[in-house]
């Protein structure tokens, strides 16, 4: 579904952000990307839907090359759902209109159809009653659940999550993770940048560990948590699992 091969990105010759990153995500797979901050995880996931450009290498999604100038990027992005660290709901639109905007403008769905789809997804994330409110009136956890519903409204073939729980108060993390776990169980293809190792243990098929712009470890979940091969991954794991 997602093929990343030999991707390099740098801001200047001395400032390399991604170094020769190669990995893939197959259909129905849940891949968790972790690593210390500044290791390039978020940059890598943003390269997948071309929100970040890169200098060399190739990324393709469902057979379409992301870095080909001839690719219809808006069309490609409409099929790739993305959830951001800071939610990025549109504050001037009601919750339901946040869900309808792209459905109507990008997929040309009728207002009625978009509304029906939107309400169905809001019900699924448990926020049907909030449809007529504005984002500012919702808690962080609720906003992030709306953001997931907004991405799902486009019927994506794959979902990207960029640290979806990092900006949340601790007591709101689980309500967002619950939605993501359900999604994984339904067979959604997911690439998730997160520090939530509990989530990784529960639903990930594979774990990718990044450090200083490189993919250091790319292993099945059992192998990664059982005995990571690299020193750096061992150290990272012992640090975040020791509490």
């Amino acid at each position: 579904m997602i093929e990343i091969s030999h991707v390099n990105k740098w801001y200047s010759p001395s400032f390399q952000v991604l170094t020769d990153c190669t990995t893939s995500v197959t259909k129905g797979e849940v891949v968790v990307v972790c690593g210390p901050s500044g290791s390039g995880k978020s940059t890598l996931i943003k390269c997948v839907n071309a929100l970040e450009p890169f200098q060399s290498g190739d990324i393709s999604v469902d057979g379409t090359k992301v870095n080909d100038p001839k690719t219809d990027l808006p069309k490609l992005r409409s099929r790739v759902g993305m959830v951001f660290q800071h939610f990025e709901l549109f504050p001037h639109l009601k919750i339901i209109d946040n869900l309808c905007l792209a459905q109507q403008k990008v997929l040309d769905r009728s207002r009625d159809k978009a509304m029906a789809k939107g309400m169905q997804l809001l019900e699924r994330v448990g926020l049907k009653e909030q449809a007529q409110k504005y984002p500012a009136n919702l808690s962080g956890g609720q906003q992030q659940r709306v953001a997931i519903a907004r991405a799902l409204a486009m019927d994506p073939i794959v979902m990207l999550f960029d640290e979806p729980t990092s900006a949340l108060d601790p007591e709101m993390v689980s309500e967002v993770l619950d939605v993501m776990v359900d999604l994984a169980h339904e067979g959604m293809t997911m690439m998730v940048v997160t520090h939530e190792m509990g989530f990784a243990r529960k639903v990930a098929n594979r774990v990718i560990f990044m450090d200083r712009g490189e993919i250091v470890e790319d292993a099945a979940k059992e192998d990664f948590f059982g005995k990571p091969r690299s020193d750096r991954a061992q150290k990272f794991l012992s640090k975040i699992l020791s509490h």
Partner: peptide
């Protein structure tokens, strides 16, 4: 910058992003 990024991630074009997301705000 996250606002236009979120809009493009949903598949909105540059013009649509400006018209429906950035300029109204």
């Amino acid at each position: 910058r996250g606002q236009p990024a979120a809009a493009s991630a949903l598949g909105l074009t540059y013009a649509q992003t400006m018209r429906y997301v950035v300029l109204p705000q």
